[in-house]
């Protein structure tokens, strides 16, 4: 049974990789299997985690769960075209609640925490900072300011304002470049994981 699973895994892995050459029937088969199994898997997970695990078990201790359940039932009204418009209510509730919750989160992380992290002495504590630290602090302060200028939409990017905005987008792009390299390296580990499966677990060529 274990060998059968290995062969199925290898068949599906190679099928997905065949997309690198071109779209083909093997890839389509693997794609359909992947989508079908994962969709079914998520149905089961959501049922047991959310409906049973949260609502059914906690329905007596936590009355608010009934509100969520009621909103869920309203969503099902979409299945009846005549009363399908009722499903907009839970949707409106979700959108409104999301906007409200995120508003304070964004205030907190994008304004307060950002400004607090940027407030630092350029010269270092008691002149003790090295040249590298001083440059680093300067880049953080100027980079944050210039970046904010770039995202300021109420003024045309012209003159000194435009020059600062250009500096801001340069800082952002340099940051993205570093992030790109870092993330590509982490993605390589996914490829290595699959190759390890094919050459190690399946073919036994590497131990």
């Amino acid at each position: 049974m274990e060998h059968f699973g290995l062969w199925v895994g290898a068949f599906l892995t190679l099928g997905i990789y065949s997309f690198l050459y071109r779209d083909n029937a093997w890839y389509k088969l693997c794609e359909a299997i992947f989508i079908g199994i994962s969709a079914g898997y998520w149905v089961v997970i959501l049922f047991w985690d959310n409906f049973y695990g949260k609502f059914w078990i906690g329905r007596e201790e936590e009355p608010m769960l009934w509100v969520g359940a009621a909103l869920g039932v309203l969503m099902l009204c979409r299945l009846v075209p005549r009363i399908g418009w009722i499903s907009r209510w839970p949707l409106a509730f979700i959108v409104g609640a999301t906007a409200g919750l995120w508003m304070m989160n964004y205030f907190s992380s994008n304004i307060m925490a950002q400004v607090q992290s940027t407030i630092m002495p350029l010269l270092g504590e008691g002149y003790s900072a090295s040249f590298g630290e001083i440059v680093g602090n300067f880049v953080i302060a100027v980079g944050t300011f210039a970046g904010l200028i770039y995202f300021y939409f109420s003024k045309e990017h012209k003159g000194a304002f435009g020059a600062t905005a250009r500096l801001g987008i340069w800082v952002i792009m340099i940051t993205f470049g570093a992030s790109f390299g870092y993330t590509v390296m982490s993605r390589m580990s996914l490829l290595i994981g699959r190759i390890d499966f094919l050459l190690g677990d399946w073919l036994g060529l590497i131990q």
């Binding site: 693997c30 794609e31 992947f34 989508i35 994962s38 969709a39 959501l46």
Partner: peptide, 14 residues
Amino acid sequence: VTDEQFGYVASVDG
């Protein structure tokens, strides 16, 4: 399509 991240990607790519 599906909630599964790469299942979704496979479908969109196709």
